[in-house]
Amino acid sequence: MSQTVVLPSYEELAALVVELRGELAAASERIAVLEAEVTDLRARLGQNSANSSKPSSSDGLAKPTPKSLRGKSGRGPGRPKGPAGYHVAPDRDPG
């Protein structure tokens, strides 16, 4: 069982090359348009009320980044922990 393979002629190959070059040019143009659209959409997605004219209510529920880079000290409110300090005893007979 030997199969004979028919090869295309030179003219057929040349026509195929011309057709594929046209498709490649069209695809390249479409890629450039889509890349520009992606760039525009990424820029719009990165906008919030801080870097555009949008109102702050349009930011959604995302918490904004803190403006201060200071961290918490770890201390709580009130007097320091430790033994009781000295005080003046109340006078029984004020007067």
Rank of each mutant, 00 (worst) to 15 (best):
T65S: 14
V18E: 10
G85Q: 12
L69W: 03
A50I: 06
Y86V: 10
A43F: 08
A32R: 14
V5C: 00
T39E: 15
V5G: 01
Q3H: 07
L45G: 04
E19W: 01
P80K: 12
H87F: 15
L16Y: 01
A14C: 03
A14L: 12
G95K: 05
A50H: 07
D40H: 13
V5S: 01
G46P: 00
H87Y: 14
S58W: 12
H87I: 09
G22S: 06
V17D: 04
M1Q: 08
A50S: 12
G95W: 05
S49V: 02
G76A: 14
S49C: 12
S68P: 00
P8C: 05
S52L: 08
G46Y: 01
G60N: 06
A14I: 08
L45T: 07
P77R: 14
G71I: 04
V38I: 15
G74A: 03
L24A: 11
K54H: 08
A36R: 15
S52F: 05
A25V: 11
L69I: 05
S2C: 00
R42F: 03
R70P: 01
V88Y: 09
G78L: 07
N48G: 11
G76Y: 04
M1W: 05
S56T: 07
A25M: 08
L34I: 11
G95Q: 06
D40S: 14
E35K: 15
P90I: 06
K81F: 05
R92G: 09
R42P: 02
Q47I: 04
R75G: 03
G22H: 02
Q47E: 15
N51K: 06
Y10C: 00
L61A: 14
P77Y: 05
S9Y: 01
K54A: 15
A25D: 14
P90G: 11
A50R: 13
V33S: 12
H87C: 08
S28F: 02
G22D: 05
L61D: 14
K81I: 09
K72Y: 03
L61S: 14
D59Q: 05
V6M: 04
L69Q: 13
L20M: 11
A14D: 09
A14Q: 11
S9P: 02
S52H: 07
V38K: 15
V17C: 00
A32W: 04
E19K: 12
L41K: 14
R79K: 13
P77M: 07
V6L: 06
K67A: 13
T39Y: 08
R75Q: 12
I31C: 06
Q47G: 00
A43P: 00
D91F: 06
L20K: 13
I31Q: 13
V18Q: 09
T39A: 15
P83E: 11
A50Y: 07
Y10M: 09
A84I: 09
V33Q: 15
G74S: 01
P64T: 03
D40G: 13
G71P: 02
R30D: 13
L7Y: 09
P55Q: 08
A14H: 01
S58K: 09
L24R: 10
E23P: 00
S49E: 03
S2L: 00
S49T: 04
T39Q: 14
S2Y: 02
L45A: 15
E12N: 09
S9C: 02
S52A: 07
R75F: 13
S68M: 01
K54G: 01
G85Y: 06
R70Y: 08
